[in-house]
């Protein structure tokens, strides 16, 4: 971590919950072992995150970053340990948890044959969200106007990513799980994404973010966690409190 990163962190930290109050724990992973096939993708991982935090997960390819995010959404079988998300045990309360979290993975989970607006509308209504927030969300991600009624199949990879983000913003879940969100976006889109993430965090959303664009992601992160070999190796949470 460079000194420049710490300077950049300052404005985000101001928007975090005021000092003294303990932020609500939204994600708690305890000694999690997740085996994909015969491969232990997570080998006893501990991680906690509270509301308003933007946690950057970094580490080499195959370290287990994507698995952490998918495990928080209940998409990965857990052999040992346990995960609680938004106060619910993931094994029991998957459905209600999933309404309140948003996972944006390598795939954008959009229906090719529906328009931009239809896609966002379905996502919002499925999560029992507020449909009135859709127009503003589309505008915020710059996919309103002409693109709104266009089929998703006609969009570029970057535009799709913006649509998926617009759905996330419109739904407004309390936990965002973003897997390489900067990939495929143009410089403007990356800046926009950073703004959107910071805004969400300021409103109390927890953001777990896996990214290889470390310089950019560190700027918006309030914490950096290094994952290697399926467990947390270093966690910057202590550093920040000291500084």
């Amino acid at each position: 971590m460079s000194v420049a990163d710490d300077v950049q962190l300052a404005p985000v930290k101001m928007t975090a919950p005021p000092a003294g109050t303990v932020p609500e724990v939204t994600v708690a992973m305890r000694s999690v072992v997740a085996v994909l096939g015969v491969f232990p993708a997570l080998s006893g991982l501990d991680l906690q995150a509270g509301s308003g935090e933007v946690v950057l997960l970094r580490g080499p390819n195959g370290a287990g970053k994507t698995t952490v995010l998918r495990a928080c959404a209940g998409l990965v079988p857990i052999q040992r340990g346990d995960i609680s998300v938004l106060g619910c045990d993931l094994r029991k309360d998957r459905r209600s948890v999933r309404r309140r979290i948003g996972l944006l993975g390598h795939a954008t989970s959009l229906y090719e044959d529906l328009t931009v607006e239809q896609n966002v509308r379905f996502a919002v209504r499925a999560a029992a969200g507020d449909v009135d927030r859709i127009p503003a969300a589309l505008e915020r991600l710059d996919v309103g106007g002409r693109l709104r009624t266009l089929g998703v199949m006609h969009l570029s990879a970057g535009q799709r990513r913006r649509v998926a983000l617009a759905a996330l913003v419109a739904r407004g879940p309390r936990l965002w799980l973003l897997d390489e969100p900067h990939a495929g976006l143009d410089p403007d889109g990356r800046d926009l994404l950073d703004e959107v993430i910071s805004e969400a965090a300021a409103a109390g959303t927890t953001v777990l973010l896996a990214s290889h664009d470390v310089d950019r992601a560190t700027r918006i992160a309030s914490r950096v966690v290094l994952i290697t070999g399926g467990r947390v190796v270093t966690d910057s949470v202590g550093d920040h409190h000291v500084s």
Binding site: V33, V35, V38, F39, P40, S43, G44, G59, P60, A63, Q79, T228, G229, G230, R231, V233
Partner: peptide, 15 residues
């Protein structure tokens, strides 16, 4: 599995 977990964790320490 136990051996695999140990191997996976040491992969981390090497890094």
């Amino acid at each position: 599995l136990d051996a695999a977990i140990v191997a996976r964790q040491s992969e981390g320490s090497q890094h």
